[in-house]
Amino acid sequence: MIDTKPRTRETQFVSTREVGLWGRMLQGDRWLIILFLLPTLAFLIFLLWLPFLQGIWMSFHNWPFIGKPKWVGLQNYRDFVTASYFWTTIRATLIYSLSTVFQLGIALIAALALNQKFIPLKGIWWGIMLMPYAMPPVVTGAIWMYLLDPNLGMVTHYLIKLGILSEPIYWASDPTWAKWVITLVVSWTFWPFMFLIILSALQSIPESYYELAEVYGANLWQRFRTVTWPHIRGAVLAAFIIRIVWNLEKIDQPFQLTGGGPGYETSVLSVLTYRFAFLSGDFGMAFTVGIFLIAFMMILMIPFLRRFQILITQAGKRG
């Protein structure tokens, strides 16, 4: 049928180098991959891991804002653990992290309500619900500063008028109230994040599931338990874990509302980091506190880690 052309004649048209290069590129698209990964790699190295390691290095120093750092070994760590405010700050952090639970509560109510077919004007309510999250935290912080002001704030005024309070609470100087104020203000500000994730999970539930449940006579609570909850559980969990971490580092508002005070009563670990860095210019100590913050986050996340890992590997495999 066909003569096979002699090999030597053909090979001279295709140089071996090109052959090798293209062969590899097809298998791995090597150059494109390297080029495209460079920015991401640079980010991971220069903006995350190097600063992180640098921070650990700094925590072994007495490191002023300007001037020469001095090696002090574990002194910063010893100082912090033995400091009078150590347990105060840990307690504050614990209460502060409760805000994730409050956020979940509001987000669930809002998402479930807005996901009902019969609710009109959904777009408008959606826009309003996102307002606290959309605005800069310092803005919402300023708003609550005014509303909660013991002397001229609207909230105090009405609480007294309704007889719930007998006299204004000077929360900024009250250790217990200060903690609850910052926790609640942060909850009020950041719940729409969970709301967005839960709502889109709700919207992805096929209508036929509800119809089926209804045919089998499931009541409202049973429908929630057997259809809604299993479908949004994964999304809720993912959002919850992310928020635990993200809330603990939302310090714009605590810093603005109480400045970490009175004393150290509202100095959650992240606020304390910022206080040391920004107010005292003690960078070594600031990062030492940061290390404790990481440890704290990890301890909080242990119960969820196993489940989170499953979620992530699933997400990884999709790619």
Binding site: L47, L48, G55, Y274, F283, G290
Partner: peptide
């Protein structure tokens, strides 16, 4: 990258400022 998603960024303010 996912771990980075959970990284407490507020920490990085300290070394980033110095750098």
């Amino acid at each position: 990258i996912t771990v980075a998603l959970l990284f407490p960024y507020v920490l990085l303010i300290v070394p980033i400022t110095i750098t």
